[in-house]
């Protein structure tokens, strides 16, 4: 009786091991929660013009009346845009799309304007996400 139970257990063991080892592999490849962009930036720390936040891949555009936040990825194929201070335009180094400082598309192959990111201003602090 004990032998039978032991055999049954031993028969199940390889499946358990395979299942156990495959769990982290499957989890690693198939599930990947996207971390939300969450940031707090005191308004006084923001300079006028464009500020690039490398960690979150966003551009913050501040002028005397307004603040806008753009996703720094090109809307064509997702390359990170460069901001040209002289022309005040965003340039895509991959396929040469161009966007104005307010995120408007100026030249393709991108077909739409830059994606804007929602934010709030509370207690003189910019809250992203």
């Amino acid at each position: 009786m004990l032998n039978k139970k032991r055999r049954k257990f031993l028969n199940l063991l390889p499946y358990t091991l395979v299942g156990g080892f495959s769990y982290p592999v499957v989890k690693f490849f198939l599930f990947n929660d996207k971390p939300e962009i969450k940031m707090l930036i005191p308004l006084k720390e923001l300079k006028e013009g464009i500020t690039y936040i490398e960690k979150s891949k966003i551009f913050i555009y501040k002028n005397s009346q307004n603040i806008d936040i753009y996703n720094a990825h090109c809307t064509h194929m997702g390359c990170i845009l460069n901001f040209n201070k002289d022309t005040k335009q965003f340039n895509c180094p991959c396929h040469k799309s161009r966007f104005d400082i307010d995120g408007t598309r100026l030249r393709g192959p991108a077909k739409r304007d830059l994606d804007k990111i929602a934010f709030k201003i509370k207690n003189k602090t910019l809250q992203v996400g």
Partner: peptide, 27 residues
């Protein structure tokens, strides 16, 4: 940039878009 282009190609291709988590790690 090459990685971002590859992600976009996968993302915008029907069926292959399911495989995006196989290469994109958000952390």
């Amino acid at each position: 940039a090459a990685a971002e282009v590859a992600f976009s190609l996968l993302k915008d291709t029907p069926f292959l878009d399911k495989f995006l988590p196989l290469v994109r790690d958000n952390f």
